[in-house]
Design a protein around this nucleic acid. Structure first.
Length: 474
RNA sequence: GUCCCCAUCGUCUAGAGGCCUAGGACACAUCCCUUUCACGGAUGCAACCGGGGUUCGAAUCCCCGUGGGGACGCCA
């Protein structure tokens, strides 16, 4: 039988980290065993569902690369079908109309809580034959009152629920619209879902759904309830923990495979391996290997993984997102080859593409000033003499490449009996304004001959004036 | 309150009775490499929630506590 999984978000907010991991596990499981991954939008809550949220979810999933094989299906477009199943249940006496008012239910709940009991509907309308005037009824599922339901959860093992703990849940509101637990049941059945992989918070819903499925003559699917993801402080993940939407991670300069890699390692592992390509995840992942306990989200490890992926991914992959990040810094980087060269030397010195862009700003913009402290430290009369000699060499270079420049620098250092650092640092200052950059030869190579000479000449004249003023003052 | 779930370094995890002197990774510290910053390498710091059992032997199995989480809606 073909394995069929589904991701079923409700569009009442952004797609967040937890949702993305659920989607990832569903996707990996289906992909790894020639199955089908279905996307279903659970938008039965007309009040809170928004088209913007739907778009956000779709965009987030698309960015992550978790393409669905079927769907997206919208529950709001399946109301006729739910109605049909509802009537079937009603006709079979598996469901009944309940005329209790919200006030009565509220009162019932309060009394039960006061008595220290679990609030639950007492089934008083089960045997009611006559409707109550003026009260539009809801429909409740007639849950078994005896025995128990065992959820053979793939990650938790068997979990037993007593039917007496469950009550007759509402499956259609008084306005006739179906509720979540009922739609899920009908959809999972109709879409022939074989594996329901979802958050831990749904474990308690499972016995009810299984009872309904059974009442409909359908064998329940396999269930796998994933542990929750907690914030870095161990409490429930929320907005104050930073990124809410997965799209925020894109904007912050993360690679989707890095995020996915981080997420797959939350509750799952494969020996000592930390870095996984998408292909490896698909090949190695198994829902049965997932942990039971909740995991805290660690932004530091995500950042480390992102760098690991930045260093492994084909360089071309970095061009577009790096350009995008530079655009946010008002840099219009048109040249693919140049961006690739920059990414090649910067990727081992940046955790994110955003950081890479910031570190690479100087390639596009000449420094306006030179770090004062570093200038005092690295710029001396002796260094100036060496640089002046070097610039002559540079002017004469026809093959402007890192190896050539490297040789030139070395030669000049030897001539002046200086270590390479003595000359590399002031050069860095001259071209970048600071003391941090990729290897100086590579940096100059990327910058190009014209721009390098312009910047070095400008720095030299500024520093000459400085030294002269200093000498006169003393 | 009732029901359900969970429990190994600060964090993510390995561990399915002896291989555990509890392994790896992030973070942190020190050192090496070095042209700055990184990358990389080495070393160090650091954990089985508590108590009872079962067993020759328990991080691993059972029970009870404790702590954390979830559910209990005409939300999903």
């Amino acid at each position: 039988m073909t394995i069929r999984t589904r991701f079923a978000p409700s569009p009442t907010g952004f797609l967040h980290i937890g949702g993305l991991r659920t989607a990832l596990f569903c996707w990996l499981y289906a992909r790894g065993r020639a199955g089908r991954y279905v996307l279903r939008i659970e938008d039965t809550d007309l009040e809170r569902s928004t088209p913007e949220a739907i778009q956000q979810i779709l965009d987030g999933l698309a960015w992550a690369g978790l393409a669905h094989d079927e769907g997206p299906f919208y529950q709001t477009q399946r109301f006729d079908r739910y109605r049909e199943v509802l009537d079937e249940l009603l006709a079979q006496g598996r469901a009944y109309r309940c005329y209790c008012t919200k006030e009565e239910l509220e009162q019932m709940r309060n009394e039960q809580i006061a008595r220290g009991q679990k609030p639950r509907y007492d089934g008083r309308c089960r045997e009611r034959s006559a409707p109550r005037e003026g009260i539009p009824p809801v429909v409740r599922f007639k849950n078994p009152t005896e025995g128990s339901v065992v959820v053979n959860d793939v990650v938790h093992g068997p979990v037993e629920f007593q039917n007496r703990e469950l009550d007759d849940l509402i499956i259609a509101r008084s306005d006739g619209s179906p509720t979540y637990n009922f739609c899920v049941v009908v959809d999972d059945m109709d879409m022939r879902i074989t594996h329901v992989i979802r958050g831990d918070d749904h474990l308690n819903n499972t016995p009810r759904q299984m009872n309904m499925l059974t009442a409909l003559g359908y064998t329940p699917p396999v269930y796998a309830h994933l542990p929750m993801i907690l914030g870095p402080d161990g409490t429930k993940l929320s907005k104050r923990h930073g990124a809410v939407s997965v799209l925020q991670y894109r904007d912050d300069g993360f690679l989707p495979e890095a995020l996915l890699n981080y997420l797959v390692r939350l509750g799952w592992s494969h020996g000592d391996q930390e870095v996984f390509s998408i292909e490896e995840m698909i090949r190695l992942f198994d829902i049965a290997d997932v942990n039971k306990s909740a995991a805290a989200f660690d932004p530091e490890k995500l950042a480390w993984l992102n760098q690991q992926h930045l260093m492994r991914v084909p360089l071309e992959r970095l061009i577009a997102p790096l350009r995008e990040q530079l655009a946010h810094l008002s840099i219009d980087a048109a040249d693919d080859a140049q961006l690739m060269a920059i990414a090649a030397v910067q990727r081992e010195r940046a955790k994110t593409l955003k950081e890479m862009a910031a570190n690479s700003l100087f390639f596009f913009r000449a420094p306006e000033r030179y770090e004062a402290k570093a200038t005092r430290k690295h710029v001396t009369a002796e260094v100036l003499r060496a640089l002046e000699a070097l610039i002559e060499d540079l002017r004469a270079v026809s093959d402007w490449s890192a190896p050539t420049l490297h040789a030139l620098l070395h030669a000049q250092c030897e001539r002046h009996a200086l270590s390479l650092g003595k000359i590399a640092q002031p050069l860095r200052l001259a071209v970048s304004g600071g003391t941090v950059s990729p290897p100086i030869d590579a940096t100059l190579a990327i910058l190009g001959k014209v721009e390098t000479l312009r910047r070095v000449e400008r720095a030299l004249s500024a520093w000459r004036a400085d030294l002269f003023a200093q000498a006169n003052r003393i």
